[in-house]
Design a protein around this nucleic acid. Sequence first.
DNA 1: TTCGTACTCAACCGCAAGGTTGAATAAACG
DNA 2: CGTTTATTCAACCTTGCGGTTGAGTACGAA
Lengths: 105, 105
Amino acid sequence: MEDELSRAFAALADPIRRDIVARLTADDMTVTEIASDYDVSLQAVSKHLRVLEAAGLISRRRDGQQRWAHLEVDVFDLLTGWIDTYRRRAELRHQRLDEILRRST
Amino acid sequence: MEDELSRAFAALADPIRRDIVARLTADDMTVTEIASDYDVSLQAVSKHLRVLEAAGLISRRRDGQQRWAHLEVDVFDLLTGWIDTYRRRAELRHQRLDEILRRST
DNA sequence: TTCGTACTCAACCGCAAGGTTGAATAAACG
DNA sequence: CGTTTATTCAACCTTGCGGTTGAGTACGAA
């Protein structure tokens, strides 16, 4: 788990972190706001946010006492980019297979 | 890590497993074939394949002594489905924000 | 039936992940 | 200033992951 792709996939493997990401699509939120939604400690949520930040999925801005989390959608492109590359490759292979089968009959 | 989505994200968080998936887009492969590509034991690769299977990313077929791994692309849709849902939601929010800003000037 | 090949099972190890609690820092407020 | 509020840091615990080695299973070939 070194590269950005691994960090992004790993970050989204946790249900709480996925849910945080989902909520951040509606609005930027503070740590306390986010933590109130879950049955874990504030510190645990703080850790989750650090993981999301390290994965590039969120950015953070300090405003007085509060730290606002903001969703960064660019990493989504990284993920779908990887997935689509190999999905396309798999589909191409099937198309070629189908063609061979069609020609051989 | 209980649901399919978590298992799929977690499965792809590992570079070796991502590489296995990538290679399986070209052709079905046996455990030994796959293992020859990496600097880990056959047993380690066997474990990786079990993880990929549990995530629904591959299926396996026994043929004599060999077990062939076959890529199952449907899980890709599950992942891109999740990602696109929230990307779209984030983009909608920004559009609304832009509109409000435009109207208020 | 014996032997080699392909693979899995089982036990173990080191380490990181996700959780906790308690203390520290930092800003707002009286 | 002292106190409350927001957040992080630090130490710790337990669990799971990715790796290993060694033994077991299952099939093919001789």
